[in-house]
């Protein structure tokens, strides 16, 4: 029951994270900025619209956003929120989680290639590169969790994470935050605000999507940010199972703090050169490896 409540909270609040990031960036730039609820308005508007399809698009293009969103809903179902329970739990849930992210990416890459646009192909290629490099730090961080707790699902592993010292958890959380930035296409790997097709990555892959399809993609991206944020946050907040108001509040505060931090990073940093991004993700790997050996 509490798991369902957490699931619904995530569904409802996920679009708030990009809003917060935008607000922080606006603050740093000295602007008023858009409302933090902007994504909700956008989603509602997009859902009411029709769509334009490329003449060469097949069913793969139409299926892409649907699969992507379904995968994110699945990932959310195995990731416990503030209450410590998740909707679906089984030994290997952590692996299922990682492969759902891969499934969403696979669908997005294929949808991008289906348009026949060279820009979208370029974006797809870079997305594939970053995700391939982001996978090892994620798995090593998960390995650290399993090494100490023995739990093979998030629900089983997170409560025992309290056994870990503070430093390994902090290291792993730092590594996961870097993975969070790369997977969600934020600065310093990708710039969501860029307006030149050549330099876009995630944004260019979805150029041809419109209407409800694009709403699915934007919502899926918000959910992805939520689940990866939750993963990072729960490394730092090892709650037990069951519902507690204090835990719930702490968890949500942590989620918003991560959004805040992302906004600050985006405002203070420039994007890395394409061939320096691997170094950043390798550093994340070194961090999570350090977490593993010190845990």
């Amino acid at each position: 029951m509490t798991a369902l409540a957490d699931f619904l909270i995530a569904l409802a609040l996920a679009p708030l994270l990009p809003g917060i990031i935008n607000r922080v960036k606006a603050f740093f730039a000295g602007r008023q900025g858009q409302s933090p609820f902007q994504l909700y308005y956008d989603l509602l508007k997009l859902l009411r619209k029709g769509a334009v399809y490329s003449t060469c698009a097949t069913y793969v293009f139409r299926l892409g956003p649907v699969i992507g969103l379904a995968a994110m809903l699945g990932a959310l179902a195995v990731m416990p929120g503030g209450s410590g329970d998740a909707l679906h739990n089984f030994d290997g849930g952590i692996i299922f989680f990682a492969y759902l992210l891969a499934l969403a990416r696979f669908a997005a890459i294929l949808a991008a290639l289906d348009t026949g646009s060279s820009f979208e192909g370029m974006g797809a290629s870079r997305e594939a590169l970053y995700s391939a490099l982001a996978e090892p730090p994620l798995f090593v961080a998960l390995a650290m969790l399993v090494k100490t707790t023995g739990g093979l699902s998030f629900e089983a592993a997170f409560p025992d994470a309290a056994l870990l010292g503070g430093t390994p958890r902090l290291l792993a959380a730092a590594a996961l935050f870097l993975v969070f930035l790369a997977e969600n296409c934020r600065i310093p790997t990708d710039d969501p605000n860029t307006h030149l097709e050549l330099t876009m990555m995630h944004e260019v892959m979805v150029l041809d999507h419109s209407g409800p399809d694009f709403a699915f993609i934007s919502y899926g991206a918000a959910l992805k940010m939520w689940v990866l944020g939750a993963l990072t946050a729960r490394f730092l907040l090892p709650f037990g199972p069951g519902f507690e108001l204090r835990q719930e509040a702490l968890f949500l505060a942590a989620m918003f703090a991560i959004a805040l931090l992302t906004g600050v990073v985006e405002s203070c940093m420039a994007r890395l050169r394409l061939n320096r991004v691997p170094a950043m993700l390798l550093a994340a790997l070194a961090l999570s490896f350090a977490a593993f050996v010190t845990a």
Binding site: C56, A102, F106, L110, L113, D114, E135, L138, A143
Partner: peptide, 26 residues
């Protein structure tokens, strides 16, 4: 498991590329 993770991600990229270039687009 680190190797499996890298292999998994690269395999997905590899097969998305093969299917994408042979069967999708024009």
């Amino acid at each position: 498991l680190t190797a499996l993770a890298i292999i998994g991600a690269l395999a997905a990229a590899c097969f998305a590329r093969a299917f994408g270039t042979a069967f999708l687009g024009l």
